[in-house]
């Protein structure tokens, strides 16, 4: 497995988009589990990415290129997710979003797919979603859970206000938080939440608790 992971990472490092996508699709066609692809290939490809270039601006667009490749892989592997889900169903709904000004959405997309895989009725409503749009989605869709993914620590400020507003109007709505900013600063920011979920195991545990 380690050799295969390294081969895949090398393709990403060289920004060989076509080869990277086909590499993952071939692994899935030869029987590898979609969850393993997420856990060992896709997530580490972004989470463990270190740009060793001194020039920050080069690192930014290189990271964006990598993210774009990973996004294509996620979209192209979705049929495997449908197969893996089978008939699993939980009578709970979750809206997933990145709050206003939060553009890092891959974590939110992966979380949505994990919720889906565990049988939730999961809907991803987008990156950089204005607070009023999130409130509108909650009002209309009446989800059991709202999951927000936050990477940039400044966005905790806006999200804190959003959650306070939501909790005042929808006290039964459960707030799930995840993302790098939450991992590091959830306690310091004193942001309100019901659950912090950062991995498939966390979502699986929630699903198990609900079943």
């Amino acid at each position: 497995m380690k050799t295969k992971i390294n081969e895949f990472i090398k393709l990403l490092d060289n920004e060989e988009k076509d080869k990277a996508i086909m590499y993952i699709l071939n692994l899935l066609d030869s029987g590898n589990d979609i969850l393993d692809i997420y856990e060992y290939f896709i997530i580490p490809a972004l989470a463990d990415y270190n740009c060793d270039n001194d020039q920050e601006e080069i690192c930014i667009w290189k990271e964006h290129t990598r993210t774009s490749i990973v996004r294509t892989i996620l979209e192209n592997t979705y049929p495997y997710l449908i197969k893996a889900k089978g008939n699993k169903k939980i009578n709970k709904s979750v809206i997933v979003a990145c709050p206003q000004e939060e553009y890092h959405e891959i974590g939110a997309i992966i979380a949505t797919n994990y919720f889906y895989l565990e049988g939730f009725k999961a809907k991803y409503i987008g990156a950089n979603t204005p607070s009023e749009e999130i409130i509108s989605a909650v009002k209309i869709l009446k989800p059991d859970y709202l999951a927000l993914s936050i990477t940039n620590y400044y966005n905790l400020i806006q999200t804190k206000k959003l959650i306070n507003t939501l909790k005042a109007s929808y006290p039964n709505l459960k707030i799930i938080l995840g993302g790098q900013a939450i991992k590091k600063y959830a306690n310091k920011s004193k942001i309100q939440y019901d659950l912090i979920l950062n991995s498939y195991e966390d979502i699986k545990k929630l699903s198990g608790d609900l079943s």
Partner: peptide, 24 residues
């Protein structure tokens, strides 16, 4: 926000009190 998000610590005041204090 372009300045604040680049600083190492953000202190938010609300109604004369420290409402948020996050340090990178």
């Amino acid at each position: 926000r372009k300045i604040a998000e680049k600083t190492d610590r953000i202190i938010e005041l609300k109604d004369g009190e420290v409402y948020t204090d996050i340090e990178k």
